[in-house]
């Protein structure tokens, strides 16, 4: 199956951060989460994918076409939820729906109304009077009502309470259950990727520090926490990060079997959490 989204060696200097050599691929029917702190380039990447800004180098293909120049047919297959409030907020929810509906040939008004009900969105309320979470839901309803095959969400969980976040992530996993639709979302919260995300991309300072199936991290990678003798591990192939701790070192391995030999004596072997991986990845012994 063809990938819905292909990003190849993108470069872009924009805002405060410059994306360097970013590549990713998203096949149909999967969820990809892009995680990183503020200023790591998440929004820049999302905006490149939506075609708001043009790359300085490299190529982006969405449904096989350049998103900055692609035509209506391809653009109608993309659904989006932007992180900034959309500017048409003096309109009521229903009016905003009608306005957006105008642009999509396969807009499903019945489905839109159903989603408004399901999300408990008051149709007559002004969009500007909605809470942050409601706004994300409205964006999602707008995107789902036109049968988008690729959903792009910029930090949908930021500022949401935990219950709401869980609900949203559950909704995303229901969306991809058809095997055709894929979801790409960015987040500051690593645990958002814990469960439903198939692919994880970690950004730091505009560079990809990890990109791959999330399960690889959680099931195959390992952390060894041990004494000063662990410094000897630093040169090993499977080591992806090493950091001085109070007792000695924490070492991140991308292969549990490779980690086991270092685990004699008092050193302990652990499955990493995403937080562990993010903190340790790429760190050097000296730090």
């Amino acid at each position: 199956m063809d990938d819905l989204l292909v990003v190849e060696r993108i470069r872009k200097a924009w805002d405060v951060v410059a994306l360097e050599d970013v590549s990713l691929r998203l096949p149909p029917g999967h969820i990809m989460g892009i995680a990183g702190p503020n200023g790591s380039g998440k929004t820049t990447l999302i905006r490149l994918i939506l075609g708001h800004i043009r790359p300085d180098g490299g190529a982006i293909r969405v449904f096989g076409d350049d998103p900055g120049l692609s035509g209506r047919a391809i653009r109608s297959r993309i659904g989006f939820v932007l992180d900034r409030p959309i500017s048409y907020e003096h309109l009521s929810v229903t009016r905003l729906g009608r306005l957006v509906a105008d642009f999509y040939a396969d807009w499903d008004e019945v489905e839109f109304q159903r989603l408004l009900d399901e999300f408990e969105l008051p149709g007559r309320r002004r969009a500007s009077a909605l809470s942050r979470g409601m706004r994300v839901k409205l964006g999602l309803a707008l995107a789902l009502a036109h049968n988008a095959e690729l959903l792009v969400l910029d930090e949908p969980t930021t500022g949401l309470d935990p219950v709401f976040r869980r609900e949203l992530l559950a909704r995303l996993s229901a969306i991809i259950a058809d095997g055709r639709t894929s979801v790409l979302f960015s987040t500051q919260i690593l645990t958002d990727l814990d469960r439903v995300a198939d692919f994880a991309v970690f950004l730091r300072g505009g560079r990809v520090v990890f990109s791959g199936p999330k399960d690889d991290l959680l099931d195959r990678w390992a952390i060894v926490r041990g004494g000063p003798e662990l410094a000897a591990a630093a040169g090993a192939d499977a080591v992806r990060g090493i950091r001085r701790s109070r007792m000695g070192f924490d070492v991140l391995f991308d292969d549990m079997d490779a980690a086991k030999p270092y685990c004699d004596g008092p050193a302990v072997l652990e499955r990493p959490t995403l937080d562990d991986v993010f903190l340790l990845l790429g760190s050097k012994e000296s730090q």
Binding site: L50, G51, H52, R72, S87
Partner: peptide, 16 residues
């Protein structure tokens, strides 16, 4: 209000 970003995400080309 930089609404153009929103408009550009809709199924319209920049030429449109």
């Amino acid at each position: 209000f930089s609404a153009t970003a929103f408009t550009c995400s809709l199924p319209v080309t920049r030429d449109d």
